[in-house]
Design a protein around this nucleic acid. Structure first.
Lengths: 334, 334
DNA sequence: CGAGTTTTTGCAACCGGTTGCAAATCTTCT
DNA sequence: AGAAGATTTGCAACCGGTTGCAAAAACTCG
C-alpha cells in the first residue's frame, strides 16, 4: 500500500536511520549511501510521512489560517496571497472558517490537536483577545488586519484604522463637503470602532463640518445597501459618506442609484480597501488603498521568524494607506 | 509544555491505554474510568494529538482542497461552502493553491506526505487527468466542477457544460438574436471546450443563426474586458454574447459601455454561474445559474462516503442549470 | 457462595519516523 | 604499516498515540 521507510531500508540493504538521514538536509550521510537510498526510494515510490516525522521533530509545517469573512471579495486576494506565500516557504495552510463563531476556544483546541506550527488570524473584525488565546496556548500567532495597539499582546500586521478615519475626513473636506457621515461595518468590529474614532477625532478639527455615523450589520453588499436605503429615507442625509469597506460602498452605491440619485454629484462615496473590483469600470470606486500585499508578505515573514524564535517580542507592523481617486467623489475644489 | 496522554495517565493513576480509550468513542471503558480520566485531563488541559493517533488509525481527517482560480469571486462562495461543510463533519481542509501549475505530481506528493484522507479538486479548468493522478496514488478524490464524462475515471460533481452551451443558444435565439457568439474562458479549460461544443451543436439546429466564438485567456474581469474590446473593433460583431463565466461577462460589460454601447439594446450578454455579485444592482447580469451549493454539498457527501469505501465505483453527479433573468438580455420576443 | 460469563483493564507491540551514542569505517599523516 | 582523528553507520530508545490479547474485575445465576 503506502511505502514506508522500513521497506526502503530493506531494499537498499541499510538501516532505517540511514534512510531517514538520506532524506534530511544536513544529516551525516555519505554520497554513496544517499545515492543507494535514493535509488531504492525511487524504485518503491517512497516519500516520507510528514506527520510521523513531526512527532519527533515537533514541526508539522502546518499553519492555521483563521478567518471569518468569506463573503467579502477582498478575501479572495487575501487567500490567494496567503496560500501562495506560505506554500513558497514550504508551509501548508490549514483553513478555519469562523463564520458565526467568535469564541476562540474551539479553534485553539482544534489547531492544537493538529499541532500547527503557527496560526495566522486574518480578520479585521475579531477582537484582539481572539489572537491572544493562541498566544496563551503557546502557539505562535500573527493577527493580520488586526487592531493596532501601542502595547500589543500579539504580533499585529495591518493598518492604522484610526488614521484611515482621519484621512477620510480630510479627503471629504478637501472636496468641499460640509455634511458628511461614516457608514461603518458591524459595530462590534474593532476596525469599525477605530475608523469611527479617527473619523470623529478629525471632524473635531473642522468646525465647519457636520458629521453623523451609523452601522451596517456586516461587511457585505446587502448590509451596505440596506443601511444606505434607510439613510436616504431621512430628509437630511449627508452629502458624502465614508464607508468602512469597499463591498459596503458598492452596496451603498446600489441603493443611491436605486433611489434615482447620482454619484458623485448628489452623493459622494469613499470606500476602504481598494480591492481589485473597485477598479472595475462599472464600479469605479474612489477608495482608501489598504496595502494587503505588503501586509500579507510581512505577516508571513513574521510567522516564519517566530517559528525559530517563538518568544519573539510582540510587535505591531503598520502600513500607511492613501486615497485612490476614481469616480465616486467629486474632484478636489481649491 | 504540551500535555501528553502519559501525563494524564500518571495523574489519574491508570494505564495509558485507559486514557486513550476514554477519548475514543465506542471503546470499552467503564463510566467510572472515563470520569476519572476526564477529570485528570481537564486539570491538565489535555487534548489528544490528532496526528499521532493518525499513525495507528490511518485517519487524519485532513482533506486536501485543491484549486487554481483564486481570482474569480465565485470561489469565495466555493471556499466558504467547502470549509464549512467539511468542518461540520469534523474534517479539516488543507488548502493547495495551484496558480500557474497544472502538473499534478507535486500536489500528489505533498498531499500524500500529509496523509490526507481525501482530496477535493475544485476547478472547472483542470483536465480530468489531474484528479486521476490522485486516484492512481490511491487517494480518494472528488473532482468538483469537473468535466462530465459518461465513463468517469474519478468521481465528478458538477454541471453538464455542453448542455449549458445549448441552453445559451436557445436562450439567445428565443430573444430574437440571429448573430451570436461565444466568448469563452481559456481555450485549454475543459469547461470552455465543452460549453463551446454544446453551443455549436445547438447552433447547428438553428439554420437562421450565425455564430462565432473566441477565447479570453483567463476566467477574469481583465481578460473578458480585453477580449470584448478586441471584438468591438471588428466592424461586424455579434448582437449577443454568451460569456463562459460571470466575471468574464462583467469584464465584457465594462468594455461595451466603455465603447459607448448600451446593454442590452446594442449588445446582449448572458453569463454563467450566477455568483452572488451577479445580482448586485450595478451589475444585474442575466446568467445561467450553476447550483454550487448543491454541487458542494454533494461533493462532500461523496467524499465522506469514500472515506469508508475507498474503492467505490466512480460516478458523475450532474446538476441541471437554468437561466436567471436580469438586465443584460432583451426580453423574450414572441 | 462459587462457577461461568461478560466487561474492564493493563501489558506490550506497533504506527512511521528521528536522534544520541558508540562502534565501524575511512582519511590522513608519520 | 599503524596510530590518531574524522566521518559514517547502526542500534536502540523515543515521539504520542492505538490495539490485540490475556489477566483481572465485575456481574449473573443456580
Amino acid at each position: 500500500m503506502v511505502v514506508t521507510l522500513k521497506e526502503v531500508a530493506e531494499r537498499a540493504g541499510v538501516s532505517r536511520s540511514a534512510v531517514s538521514r538520506a532524506f534530511t538536509d544536513g544529516a551525516s550521510v555519505s554520497d554513496k549511501m544517499r545515492r543507494k537510498v535514493e535509488k531504492a526510494a525511487r524504485e518503491l515510490g517512497y516519500s516520507p510521512n510528514a506527520l510521523a516525522s513531526s512527532l519527533t521533530t515537533g514541526r508539522t509545517k502546518l499553519i492555521g489560517l483563521v478567518s471569518n469573512n468569506f463573503h467579502n471579495p477582498i478575501f479572495l486576494e487575501v487567500f490567494d496571497l496567503f496560500t501562495r506565500g506560505l506554500q513558497d516557504r514550504g508551509l501548508r495552510p490549514l483553513l478555519v472558517n469562523l463564520t458565526d463563531e467568535t469564541d476562540p476556544e474551539n479553534s485553539v483546541r482544534m489547531l492544537r490537536q493538529y499541532s500547527v506550527d503557527g496560526v495566522v488570524v486574518a480578520s479585521s473584525t475579531l477582537p484582539p483577545g481572539f489572537a491572544k488565546a493562541f498566544r496563551d496556548a503557546q502557539v505562535p500567532v500573527v493577527h493580520s488586519f488586526g487592531r493596532y495597539s501601542s502595547a500589543p499582546q500579539v504580533h499585529v500586521v495591518g493598518i492604522d484604522n484610526m488614521e484611515c478615519g482621519r484621512i477620510a475626513v480630510r479627503e471629504l473636506a478637501a472636496r468641499g463637503h460640509r455634511k458628511i457621515a461614516f457608514l461603518g461595518g458591524p459595530e462590534t468590529a474593532t476596525s469599525t470602532q477605530d475608523r469611527l474614532a479617527g473619523f470623529m477625532q478629525e471632524v473635531a478639527q473642522h468646525p465647519q463640518i457636520k458629521a453623523a455615523y451609523s452601522y451596517a450589520n456586516a461587511y457585505s453588499f446587502e448590509a451596505g445597501r440596506h443601511e444606505m436605503l434607510r439613510l436616504l429615507e431621512q430628509p437630511t442625509h449627508a452629502e458624502a459618506y465614508f464607508c468602512g469597506d469597499d463591498v459596503l460602498s458598492i452596496g451603498a452605491l446600489s441603493a443611491i442609484r436605486e433611489r434615482g440619485l447620482s454619484v458623485p454629484n448628489d452623493i459622494g462615496i469613499l470606500g476602504l480597501n481598494d480591492m481589485e473590483m473597485a477598479g472595475w469600470e462599472n464600479i469605479n470606486l474612489t477608495t482608501i488603498h489598504q496595502p494587503i500585499r505588503q501586509i500579507i508578505t510581512s505577516s508571513i515573514e513574521l510567522m516564519v521568524a517566530m517559528l525559530d524564535e517563538p518568544d519573539r517580542y510582540p510587535e505591531a507592523r503598520i502600513f500607511p494607506c492613501s486615497v485612490v481617486e476614481r469616480g465616486t467623489l467629486k474632484p478636489i475644489t481649491t
